[in-house]
Simulated assay, not measured.
Amino acid sequence: MSGVLLSSNRAKLAIPPLTSGRAYTVKGEQVGDPKKEIIRRVLYPSNIKNRPTPIGTWRPDIGRAIQRAIPSVQAHQTIERAWLLHKRHLRKKRDAETARKFECMQEAMDELYKLDPKLYLEANRSEDPRARSKAEMELMKTLKTSEMRTLAARIRGLFPRELRIPTDTPARTGWNYEWKPFPRPI
């Protein structure tokens, strides 16, 4: 009896129930969870027609401001074309710089081929970074599981993950004299 009385008093006073995440009733109307309502209002605000948003993403006077700054469609189109032309010039400069660098690299590779064809072939050899040599496979058999996983996760040519980060302050435990770097793959 008191449970019914409490819930009816809550409905009259518009007090949400103590449990969160459930809908509750106010004056006979079903109302959702207030937390969800707040999140919904923040993510999907109603269309505000009479005032600008506090962060400036929507301004009702923007049409008038644009009309004052750019009075005609022709002026707007001219500005747009000028902006596109500017972007095209930047793109062409960037492409020309890339082409210049590529040609310099091509000349260096041709010079390397003339000097030492073996080095040229070694420089242009493609290899699978996941492939392991026989020596690495033998080394993996002697390692602990955690060390083996570390070695298997290492990709040749990339910065080693297990390299310690240099810090300004010493470690709390002091210097670890027993620490040895992980064995490098052959």
Rank of each mutant, 00 (worst) to 15 (best):
M1H: 09
G3F: 02
L5T: 15
L6A: 15
S8L: 15
N9M: 15
N9R: 14
R10P: 02
A11Y: 07
A14S: 12
A14H: 12
Y24T: 14
T25P: 05
T25S: 13
T25L: 15
K27C: 11
G28K: 09
Q30A: 15
Q30F: 04
G32R: 10
P34S: 08
R41C: 06
N47F: 06
I48R: 09
I48Y: 03
P52V: 05
P52M: 05
T53H: 04
I62L: 15
R64D: 15
A69D: 02
T78N: 06
R81M: 11
L84K: 15
L85K: 09
H86Y: 10
L90G: 10
K92I: 11
K93G: 13
R94I: 06
R94Q: 12
D95V: 02
D95Y: 03
A96T: 03
T98V: 11
C104K: 01
C104P: 00
Q106T: 14
E107A: 01
E111S: 08
Y113L: 02
Y113E: 02
L115W: 04
D116F: 01
Y120N: 01
E122I: 04
N124D: 00
R130S: 12
K134V: 09
A135W: 00
L139Y: 04
K141D: 11
L143P: 00
T145K: 11
M148W: 00
R149Q: 13
R149I: 12
A152K: 06
A153S: 14
L158E: 15
L158R: 15
E162Y: 12
R164A: 14
R164L: 10
P166N: 12
P166I: 12
T167C: 10
T169Y: 05
G174I: 01
Y177Q: 09
Y177D: 15
Y177N: 13
Y177E: 12
K180Y: 07
F182I: 13
F182D: 07
P185Y: 07
